[in-house]
Design a binder for these strands. Structure first.
Length: 430
RNA sequence: GCGGUCGUAGCUCAGUCGGUAGAGCACCUGGUUGUGGUCCAGGACGUCGCGGGUUCAAGUCCCGUCGAUCGCCCCA
């Protein structure tokens, strides 16, 4: 069995930063969670699609250098001599871009409004840190329509994500909802052009504080005190009805947000709040935007679930106007942060409910027969692989298999209580 | 890309003023014949991240390098 002393040369693998993997007992929980999320998505009629890990680099197309450097490209170790042109394929870094491409390519085969969910890995070449990985799973839902997408979908996707998160039993979840038109409308009215800079500083409001934001808006963006106070008063205002709309954009934003919030009133109290400090870094969001916090997990400062509305999803891939709205649950970050903070109880390391043991070789046939009967009745069942009986039972114990079956005696032992009783495999239930 | 911290058994770590490695957990075997979790006894497991330097002697000191980790930047 064991090779003698001649030392085998082994390469000791190093952990790969940002590419997490779990032991079976946590993977079991992860699968349960994914099943719950999927069930909620499907209960609203969202269909599933899966797109390839890679897209053409042209499709993923960089929007700037910061983005570029996070994209992983795909290449063969030994590319052919005459094939040494630039990388053509890249791993997708989100599921929105692949969705856009998918909708454009399959336009004639889809029924609109197209409502789909997608739960896949994405890859980003970032420096990993707490809750931040280079390979991670996202659960996205989006609704895409041709020409016009009714505003009620903005409320629906948010409500669905809330329900999905709530089904995981991870404490209080709070959606924070805003509408970019409100702030952008004000900036327009104030003749402020550098909207990206302003929104990115507003985004940091909670993190660096009001004083600091005032300072950078003044020193880095060059805004005047009056402009700054108008902006900050707006984003910190709590009452939508009290907002003084300075132009149509602002007015539209306030109306949309009010409608969405009204729709979300069916959720539990505080499950969804309007918060104008939410603006999102992304520039392609044009209306409603969302972020989500776990109120009972203070260690988790980031957003677990965010998204928004975009006017024209696939405009660069097809000559159609396709507005959409979507949210993405950052599944891996959610799971990892909760796990690291001891908020996830490990599951069993085996899906089996029963281990049928083999006390003696002449019982093999009986063992297999009992196991087949149990499986036919939908009970996950493992058969023992031999060895001493005490080893077999210890095996069940270690793997968290709750019942051990003795085929010759027709008895089943409850591992938790230690009790053993007669049972018929045809009718027995765990 | 920048900064802090850290690399010793599968895991978590100890290793005193430099004298060529230890614990716990996990793993394997046994404590008699067909019953787990406890306990007891025994066993296996290390190029002390890698390379160089100082020294009679380096896990320990110096330099470099790689990796990990936390944070910053950024975050579709």
């Amino acid at each position: 069995m064991s090779e003698k002393k001649d030392k085998k040369k082994i390469y000791k693998p190093k952990p790969i930063s940002g590419f997490p993997e779990w032991l079976p007992e946590y993977r079991a929980v992860e699968l349960q969670w994914l099943d719950k999320i999927r069930a909620v998505f499907e209960s609203y009629g969202f269909c599933s699609i899966e797109t390839p890990a890679v897209e053409e680099l042209e499709v993923i197309a960089a929007k700037g250098e910061d983005v570029d450097k996070e994209i992983y490209v795909l290449d063969r170790l030994q590319a052919d001599e005459d094939n040494k042109k630039d990388a053509r394929l890249a791993l997708h870094f989100d599921q929105t871009v692949p969705l856009a491409r998918y909708v454009a390519q399959h336009f004639d085969g889809l029924t609109f409004p197209f409502k789909r969910y997608q739960m896949q890995k994405v890859w980003r070449g970032e420096r990993p840190q707490m809750g931040r990985m280079r390979e991670f799973l996202q659960c996205d839902i989006d609704v895409i329509n041709v020409d016009h997408l009714p505003i009620h979908f903005d409320a629906e996707v948010a409500a669905i994500c809330y329900e999905a998160l709530a089904s995981l039993d991870i404490g209080r979840v709070q959606l924070r909802v805003s509408n970019r038109k409100i702030l952008l409308g004000l900036l327009e009215a104030l003749n402020i052009e550098d909207t990206i800079k302003v929104t990115s500083f507003i985004d940091k409001l909670e993190k660096i504080g009001r004083d600091e934001v005032e300072r950078v808006l003044n020193e880095d963006v060059g805004l005047e005190t009056d402009q700054i106070s108008q902006i900050l008063d707006l984003v910190t205002s709590k009452d939508l009805a009290a907002i003084d709309a300075k132009n149509d954009t602002m007015k539209e934003g306030v109306e949309e947000l009010s409608f969405v919030m009204k729709q979300l009133e069916t959720l539990p109290a505080d499950a969804a709040i309007a918060d104008l400090t939410i603006v999102r870094g992304l520039d392609y969001y044009t209306g409603t935007v969302y972020e989500t916090q776990l109120l009972d997990v203070p260690e988790f400062t980031g957003s677990v679930c965010s998204g928004g509305r975009y006017d024209d999803l696939a405009g660069s891939y097809i000559n159609k106007h396709l507005p959409g709205v979507g949210i993405s649950i950052g599944f891996s970050r959610l799971f990892d942060v909760l796990r690291q903070n001891g908020k996830i109880e490990a599951g069993p390391s085996s899906p089996a409910k029963v281990l049928v043991v083999l006390p003696a070789e002449d019982q093999r046939e009986a063992m297999n027969s009992v196991a087949q009967t149990l499986r036919k009745n939908g009970i996950n069942t493992e058969t023992a692989h031999g060895g001493k009986l005490k080893k077999q039972i210890a095996y069940a114990e270690k793997k968290g298999i709750p019942y051990v079956w003795f085929p010759a005696d027709g008895q089943v032992k409850d591992m938790a209580s230690g009790e053993q009783s007669d049972a018929d495999p045809e009718s027995w239930k765990p």
